[in-house]
Design a protein around this nucleic acid. Structure first.
Lengths: 221, 221
DNA sequence: TTGCAAGGAAATTTCAAAATTATCCGCATT
DNA sequence: AATGCGGATAATTTTGAAATTTCCTTGCAA
């Protein structure tokens, strides 16, 4: 007969994705404990399933795991953010320059499309401020833009590492003053990155990526 | 009273480390299934504990995980190896140049020590061939050398990513003709890398790192 | 002989509970 | 008053088994 249970019952992808989003969008305070007990009730599953999800999230760097001491949301610190930024700049520059060398017309199209979508949403935010429904749109749009930059780099490893770093980078920002890492200068900076990329100017593209992110670096670096 | 069980019984770090070593040193064929059933008997624990370890290993890239289809040792392919090499060259070059800029006398000492140890072992291998007990020594010595190169880069993220890539890189090589990624030219190449690093010559160091690894790249790259 | 379907065996995934371990709080001692 | 020791409580980790899914084999029909 037809199943009476509304639960999806296919692996644990829903729980993983939901917790990942909560971790990267401020659902938990930086050092907060992630208790399997309450979470299992919330998601209507066993503590072991929660544990499995948290284990994968800690492998992705979004949570911390200490043996016999459970899970915590990743801690936030200026040093961590700076290191994250430094590494992100490196990966994004490499991905962009490789894409400039290897990418064709379809890459340009994808990049232009992603930038168009992003700038539209950012204009909306400039007008009406950051409201929760728009913020989620902005998050995916900004990811898609920065992902499109390196989409033609030809290295799956570079891209998957960049994705992991990007998520952690955002996680560090979400905790700050509810700004979600959005600044008013972003619109112009994104445009300058796209222009340099479409001009196939590797050096300029590198410089613009650095300029876009350098405000997150500590002075010493 | 004193425990009668000889098992360590503290978390699962032993199982993780042991399986990690087996995966990076040829204990499993490339696409081989990693069955929780036999493994739980071998390690004397439950299938769920094995599952937890395999989950972490797949997050580290050493195993594959497909939903509802279990775990496999990571597959080997020329393309994967090439991409891995490309990314490793990038990370190792960045780590080395940053260390050259930031490292002090203690970094030089650590690097020299690691190289001395490695070259001693490699000389031993040149004389007596590659026997199992020596191979394990060589693996840790080669890791310690390449790790020492970037030890002063100041970026924990760069180093931990490099470690993950290095493991997967070795995993791709172990499956080939029992060579474990060792070639007779290595001794000289390692020396040239050290010399360039101690000379604080960033460009030369980059070039030597590339020369050391380029034989693993596919022509197109 | 080939293709397909159904049945059965094996493996994976989830669950609930037991066992182990850490954390917290009160009490005695210094 | 501060420190160290025990016991109670809570959380984590492991376990063994049930439920679900996949894979393989066998039989049937075209």
């Amino acid at each position: 007969m037809a199943d009476t249970l509304p639960t999806s019952r296919v692996g644990t992808p829903d729980i993983y994705q939901d917790l990942r989003q909560r971790l990267t969008m401020g659902g938990f305070a930086p050092g907060q404990k992630l208790l399997p007990g309450p979470l299992k009730d919330e998601y209507g599953c066993s503590a072991n399933t929660i544990r499995e999800v948290l284990l994968r999230l800690s492998a992705a760097g979004l949570a911390q795991y200490e043996d016999q001491r459970g899970f915590r949301a990743q801690a936030a610190s200026a040093q961590r953010k700076s290191d994250l930024t430094k590494f992100r700049i490196l990966l994004e520059q490499e991905g962009a320059t490789a894409s400039i060398r290897r990418g064709g017309i379809e890459w340009e199209a994808q990049l232009t499309a992603a930038h168009h979508k992003l700038s539209h949403i950012e204009a909306e935010i400039d007008r009406r401020g950051m409201e929760p429904p728009v913020v989620r749109l902005w998050c995916t749009a900004e990811w898609e833009f920065h992902d499109a930059l390196g989409a033609a780099c030809g290295s799956p490893f570079l891209r998957q590492t960049f994705r992991a770093i990007f998520d952690q980078f955002r996680q560090q920002h979400v905790t700050e003053a509810g700004k979600y890492g959005f600044a008013t200068g972003n619109v112009a900076e994104h445009r300058r990155i796209v222009d340099a990329a479409l001009d196939r100017d590797e050096a300029a593209c590198r410089a613009q990526i650095h300029a876009h992110l350098e405000r997150n670096l500590l002075p010493d670096s």
